[in-house]
Computed example of a mutant assay.
Amino acid sequence: MRFKASIQNISTFTKLTASLNSLGPLAWVKLSDDQVCFTIIPEQGTQVWAVLSIDTIFETYTVQSAANNVINLEVPLTSLNRALKSATNATSAQIRLTKKDNMPLLALTIVTASSSNSYSAFPTTSSGIDGGFGATPSEEFGANNRETIITQEIPVRVLAPDTVAGLHEPQCREPDVHIILPPLLQLKSVSDRFTKLALVGAKSGPGTVTSRTRLEMAANMHGCLKMAMKTDSMNISSVWTDLSNPELDPSQVAGGEIGISEHPSTRMKELGTADGRSEEGWATVRIDARDWGKVMSVGRLGGRVIACFCDEHALILYVYLPSDNGEDESVLTYYVSSYSA
């Protein structure tokens, strides 16, 4: 079993792990010849199934195993993200699967360089364990520059193929509405403001905080998105218009053109209006506001986001990461369950 790769986009990798870590402490990471998958399945809250092309994160990449060159790992995201943060200013970084005292770990080797006019001042060298990973620095010197090599060690667990064989993405019916969302950080700002107002109201009125921190999200097939929160003491909402409802691809819909004509979103398009004032044609979900705020943290990665609304059932977000060649090769899929009314 062998995995080794050089990281070409440390910033994206760091933001990705930070976003995923907000939803769960452990990730199932599947390494294969042509892609890297990160999956978060918490006991409660949003599930994430991320499929990344190799060049989204890595440059050189090697994976070998007896199981068709597939390696499954359980990775602590806090430790991985903390290690990646230390590589922010690195000139190069490599990650590999190895063992220490017969325990599997990911070793992140970081190389940094800085100019130096003196060779007499050596910084203190130390090693130890911090938050689940070890840091072992070393130094090399050249003409007028100093190169520092640091290896961060992240303990992991290797998962047997049988262990993950039963894990599958949630099954959802065809969405009633699909719409391209405005920037996620903008949505997060609004939802955070709603949540703060609800918490202030909860301190001065009856009821539980939990019941007061659920957002109602709705959208129609005329480019409208609505975010609302209702409590005993307030009723507040924001509406976005002139958004885009992407066309369905006949090759991706069962039945092709006929399937599109009978698709729930096609029927919903016959209802509602573009100004958002009509009460018809809306697909609605009710979600936990705090969980939603964590989901929205993926907005730091940029990219296009399509939201699929299954009325009163679930909200599925497809976050397409930008790529150098302009194609959508990597996608993070978020499954958010709806609460009953």
Rank of each mutant, 00 (worst) to 15 (best):
S251R: 04
K269Y: 12
T284H: 08
Y318W: 04
Y318K: 14
L301E: 12
Y320R: 06
K230I: 07
L248K: 07
A219Q: 02
T213F: 06
M227F: 12
G276M: 07
S237N: 12
K226Q: 15
P322E: 11
C310A: 12
I316E: 07
Y320A: 03
K226I: 06
E280L: 08
N220Y: 05
K269N: 13
G326P: 03
R267V: 03
I316Y: 02
D232F: 12
G223V: 00
F309T: 01
S278D: 10
G326C: 09
G259T: 06
S323W: 06
I306F: 02
R267Q: 08
R300C: 07
N235C: 08
K230A: 13
R267S: 09
P264W: 11
N235P: 05
E262I: 02
L248E: 00
L315N: 08
A218L: 03
S297W: 04
L215S: 10
R267E: 15
W282P: 09
L225N: 12
G302Q: 14
R300V: 04
C310T: 11
F309M: 09
E312P: 06
M229K: 14
A254E: 15
D291H: 08
M227E: 07
A314K: 07
T273P: 02
N245Y: 00
S233L: 15
I260A: 05
R290M: 03
K226N: 10
L317R: 07
S233F: 15
V295L: 09
N235M: 11
W240M: 01
D311G: 11
G302C: 06
V305H: 03
N235Y: 08
V298Y: 13
L215K: 01
W282N: 14
D288R: 06
V253D: 01
G302V: 06
P246T: 00
G303D: 04
D291P: 06
L243E: 00
A289F: 02
G302P: 10
K294E: 14
E280M: 11
M296C: 15
Y318F: 09
S244W: 00
D311L: 03
S265T: 01
S261Q: 12
R267D: 14
D324R: 01
D275Q: 08
N235Q: 14
L243A: 00
V319F: 01
D311H: 10
E216K: 10
M296D: 02
R290K: 11
E312V: 14
H222N: 05
K294P: 04
H222K: 05
N235K: 15
T213V: 12
I287P: 08
W282H: 08
E270V: 14
L248C: 08
S238Y: 15
D324Q: 13
M217F: 13
S323N: 03
V239W: 15
L301P: 12
S237D: 15
D242A: 02
S261W: 10
E312C: 05
S323Y: 07
L271D: 08
G276F: 13
W282A: 14
C310N: 14
I258H: 09
M296G: 11
D232E: 10
T231V: 05
G299Y: 06
W292T: 10
G293Q: 11
T266Q: 07
R267K: 13
Y318P: 04
R286L: 05
C308G: 07
A314I: 06
V298L: 02
S244T: 01
L315V: 04
L215T: 12
A289W: 04
I258Q: 10
T284Y: 08
P322L: 09
K230C: 15
I258G: 06
S244V: 00
K230W: 10
